[in-house]
């Protein structure tokens, strides 16, 4: 058997196969993106972006959904960033090695592994019902926070640990306290990479649907306060598609969502480039 195919030939064949499978992966991706964009572009008009939906979204635009998504992200960020960075500072700068720290790190790992639908269920039982926040931006935003918190903690912790130890020593040697050292030297040095990480986290959260389904509500009205329900863009897309309301509108919403994700990721890359050389202004 082996004599039929020489090692050199099988080497060649295998390499061809590897090229082919990599190409399949790329082509699948291109096809998916291309298909959505081609189908969605005709729908993308200014009025689609700036009008409210009519007939459950079969006509009109998606402005309330865009605003809703934006508000949810805002709440999620405003809560996840301080808590996440605080946690990372504790883990990277303060925590004594030992049981407590291990439990905390384990908790962060656990939270990261919980399926988003379970977080959605929890958000419904805890935020919507138990705390009485109802279906609202607050409930949805906090549920999203539970989801991105582990990510924020992890990227912040890594960024802090990457700050050279010499800077800490330099600050301590000048008689600075621990918190002065952390807040004035270590944290500012880590801010660019933390920012990049947090923005990437937003990119992950923005398309998240299962978490907000049972927490943010599905109202198509423009929210007037943070206790109003909203229907985020990905959920709107789900309803349009699964209830067969309108495929064109669903394509349009998909393109808008994809563009948001793309812009967010490009922003993260841009920030990383810009701050490639660490320098902090006071």
């Amino acid at each position: 058997m082996t004599s039929l195919i020489s090692p050199a030939t099988s080497d060649k064949a295998a390499k061809v196969m590897l090229w082919v499978s990599a190409s399949i992966a790329i082509l699948t991706l291109l096809f998916i993106l291309g298909y959505i964009v081609v189908q969605g572009l005709p729908v993308l008009t200014l009025s689609f972006l700036l009008e409210s939906p009519r007939l459950s979204g079969a006509e009109g635009g998606i402005l309330p959904a865009i605003v809703g998504t934006f508000c949810l992200m805002l709440v999620a960020l405003l809560s996840a960033v301080p808590i996440g960075i605080g946690a990372a500072i504790y883990l990277a700068e303060y925590a004594p090695v030992g049981v407590v720290t291990r439990i905390i790190s384990f908790g962060v790992e656990c939270l990261a592994g919980i399926p988003s639908i379970v977080i959605g269920l929890f958000g419904y039982a805890f935020l919507v019902i138990y705390l009485g926040f109802g279906f609202s931006i607050i409930s949805g935003g906090l549920a999203l926070m539970f989801m991105i918190l582990p990510w924020v903690v992890r990227v912040s912790e890594e960024s802090l640990k990457a700050v050279p130890g010499g800077l800490r020593e330099g600050s301590f040697a000048l008689g600075a306290t621990k918190w002065q050292t952390v807040s004035r030297v270590v944290l500012p040095s880590a801010v660019p990479s933390i920012t990049t990480g947090v923005i990437l986290g937003v990119g992950k959260a923005i398309g998240e649907t299962a978490v907000i389904m049972f927490t943010a509500g599905s109202s198509l009205l423009m929210p007037t306060s943070f206790f109003d329900p909203v229907r985020a863009l990905p959920y709107h897309l789900y309803i349009l598609a699964s209830e067969g309301i309108s495929d064109p509108m669903a394509y349009g919403s998909s393109v808008v969502l994809l563009v948001m994700v793309l812009v967010i990721n490009l922003a993260a890359v841009a920030i990383q480039r810009h701050y490639g050389r660490h320098h902090v202004r006071n």
Partner: peptide, 14 residues
């Protein structure tokens, strides 16, 4: 009691 280290460690500031 101040200290100067082996490797210069200026803070990344002005």
């Amino acid at each position: 009691i101040g200290m100067v280290f082996q490797k210069p460690n200026p803070f990344p500031m002005s």
